[in-house]
Simulated scan of single mutants.
Amino acid sequence: MLEQFFQCPYCWEEISMLLDTSVSTQTYVEDCEVCCNPIEISIRCTAGELQEFQANPLGQ
């Protein structure tokens, strides 16, 4: 597991989440822990290392 810090695309607060780097490609929805809006999380990992991370408003 890897802790990733990023800004919420709605309220701009810095939040963190734990990422499972054992799965190579993931896309899922997680609610912001501050404003509760849905964030679409997309990650890509290679050999357990994070290669790409995106946190976008749902539907964009």
Rank of each mutant, 00 (worst) to 15 (best):
M1G: 10
M1A: 14
L2M: 06
L2Q: 03
L2P: 01
L2A: 06
L2H: 05
E3I: 10
E3T: 08
E3S: 06
E3D: 11
F5S: 14
F5T: 15
F5I: 15
F6M: 02
F6T: 05
F6G: 01
F6A: 00
F6C: 01
Q7C: 14
C8D: 02
P9K: 01
P9Y: 00
P9Q: 01
P9H: 00
P9L: 04
Y10A: 00
Y10H: 03
Y10C: 01
Y10E: 02
Y10K: 00
C11V: 03
W12S: 14
W12E: 15
W12V: 09
E13W: 10
E14G: 13
E14M: 15
I15T: 05
I15K: 10
S16R: 13
S16G: 10
S16V: 05
M17Q: 11
M17Y: 04
L18D: 13
L18V: 14
L18H: 10
L19P: 01
L19M: 08
D20V: 06
D20W: 11
T21V: 03
T21R: 04
S22G: 04
S22E: 03
V23L: 13
V23I: 15
V23A: 10
S24D: 14
T25M: 11
T25K: 12
T25V: 12
Q26M: 03
Q26A: 02
Q26C: 02
T27P: 02
Y28R: 09
E30C: 12
E30V: 14
E30I: 12
D31Y: 09
D31N: 15
D31H: 12
C32W: 00
E33R: 07
E33N: 12
E33S: 10
V34P: 09
V34E: 09
N37A: 10
N37W: 15
N37P: 01
P38M: 02
P38R: 08
I39W: 01
I39R: 02
E40A: 02
I41D: 02
I41G: 04
I41K: 13
I41H: 07
I41C: 07
I41A: 07
S42G: 13
S42M: 11
I43P: 06
I43D: 03
I43G: 03
R44C: 09
R44V: 09
T46C: 06
T46R: 13
A47S: 15
A47R: 15
A47I: 10
G48W: 04
E49D: 12
E49A: 12
E49C: 09
E49G: 04
L50H: 10
L50A: 08
E52R: 13
E52I: 05
E52A: 11
E52D: 11
E52G: 08
F53Q: 05
Q54E: 10
A55C: 11
N56H: 07
P57E: 09
P57N: 09
P57V: 13
L58S: 05
L58G: 02
G59L: 00
Q60A: 11
